[in-house]
Structure formats: structure tokens, C-alpha cells
Design a protein around this nucleic acid. Structure first.
Lengths: 120, 120
DNA sequence: TAGATTACTAACCTAAAGGTTACTACTTAC
DNA sequence: GTAAGTAGTAACCTTTAGGTTAGTAATCTA
């Protein structure tokens, strides 16, 4: 009961997790980053790739990503004006997070399917 | 533009991420798991350890964790009745996700502090 | 004998993330 | 000449996760 030292480490971990989730825990944030990494750099291309995202939400997420230093918005003046969202190197720091989440998600989906089969 | 093959891989990754976030993306889910891993097994101990969580929310999270196979609820009959939440081995599969998120959160907090200093 | 602790639940309320619809102004394709 | 694509914004609405308050019944503590 109440091991203070471990509780402190625990609280520290929880705070770090909190910081991470604040920035990348939104419903769409990491999905947009995945699509950007996949080479989809333009607004409508992103919207088409990410099923279910609305223009309003995509626009908001892209603004947040810019503010947090993950993405650069590049406007190429011409006719028509072309806007490209370029991933910055800071986005690479998310590599471990992304691959851990994606592979855990795949694994978990398999597990859920197997569990369902066993109950039939 | 519109490389169909890579777009499909991208969609698959996004779905896996979606599955993961559905299960562990709640505001409190991973915080509770961290506290459980730290050896806090009882309800009020967990509530004291996880700053800001209400009894209602903690109770809901613990039920979800049980349903998803992360936790076993153990009742020891006696006076008073003691309830313990035991982490199951399935929770170990989250190790990579947890450490990636925690260390990214720590790193990001440092970056934010440094960025703030630079603007002063 | 008032207060704390045990493990919660019921009922209610709020905020904010996200969803929907419509619209811009210009250009290219059919 | 009309439909679709370019990159969004404005205004509005809804959902729901989470927050708040209060209370249970039994025991122990100051």
C-alpha cells in the first residue's frame, strides 16, 4: 500500500502520457499523419484518403499539426493556387508511437475475431 | 497522385490505428493501466493515485478493461469485502504502446519548454 | 460520537469535439 | 453550359465522454 516512490514514478509516467494524448490523442490527428506519411499532401487528396473526415475537421487538424511543428503549409501561387502540406522532421519522432499503435491494433483485431469464433 | 496501392496500405494502417484508439484511446484508460502496473490494485488506491479521476469514471474504465481482457476483478469475501483488480497477461501486449507514448510525451514536453524559452 | 474508509452506483449536467450543410471564386473537362 | 475539382470557411447542430453531487452500509479510528 502507498509505496510513495513508485507512486511518484507512476504519476510522472501518467503526466507524460497525458502530454502525449493531449497532442496526438484526437480522433483524427494520427490518421492525418499516417496519410501525410503515405504521400498525400493535398487537402482534397487527404480528405478522400481518410474515410469519414469532414473538410472542417481536416482543416482544424492540419492547423493543429502546423502549430505543433509536425507540418508545414506550403502555398504555390499559380492558377489554380496549390496548397501542399509537408511533413516536417519532427513528425518522425512519432515513428515508435505510430508503429506500436498500428501493430497493436492489428493484433487486437485478430484476437477479437478469434475470441468471437470461440464463443460460437 | 492517388497511388492506389500505397493508399490501400495507408487505409489499412488507419483502420488498425482506429481499432487501437477505440480500445485504449479514452482519456483515462491508459492512465489506469499504468497505475495498475505500478501495483495499485484497489479502487480507492487507484482513485488516489490517478489525479482527477472520479469514482464513476474509474468504475467505468475498470469495467471496460475487464471486458477487453486486460484486468480481472477479484473479490475477497471477508470483513470488509476487499476488491482487487489484477492485470492479466494481455495487458503486457501494450508494453510497446505505453513506453512509446510515455517517452514521446516526456520528449515533447521538453521541446515545448525549449521552444517557449527561445521566444522570450 | 463525529469522521473516515471500503467500493462503488444513481441521477443529473456540461463542454467540446466532431458532424452537417451550404457557400465561396476560379478553372478545367465533358 | 453544366458538372466537377481546387482549398477551404461560416453557421449551426448533436452526441457522448466525462464531471458533479449525493448516497449506500458496514467497520474502524480519534
Amino acid at each position: 500500500m502507498g509505496n510513495v516512490i513508485s507512486t511518484e514514478k507512476c504519476r510522472t509516467s501518467i503526466k507524460a502520457l497525458e502530454d502525449a494524448m493531449y497532442v496526438i490523442g484526437g480522433k483524427w490527428t494520427l490518421r492525418v499523419i499516417i496519410a501525410l506519411k503515405d504521400g498525400h499532401t493535398r487537402f482534397n487528396d487527404l480528405q478522400r484518403t481518410i474515410d469519414g473526415i469532414s473538410a472542417k475537421v481536416l482543416s482544424g487538424v492540419l492547423k493543429d499539426l502546423e502549430e505543433n511543428g509536425f507540418v508545414k503549409r506550403k502555398v504555390e501561387i499559380g492558377v489554380p493556387v496549390v496548397v501542399e502540406y509537408e511533413l516536417l522532421s519532427y513528425a518522425d519522432t512519432l515513428q515508435d508511437v505510430l508503429s506500436a499503435l498500428v501493430s497493436w491494433g492489428e493484433m487486437h483485431r485478430q484476437k477479437v475475431i478469434i475470441d468471437k469464433d470461440r464463443t460460437n
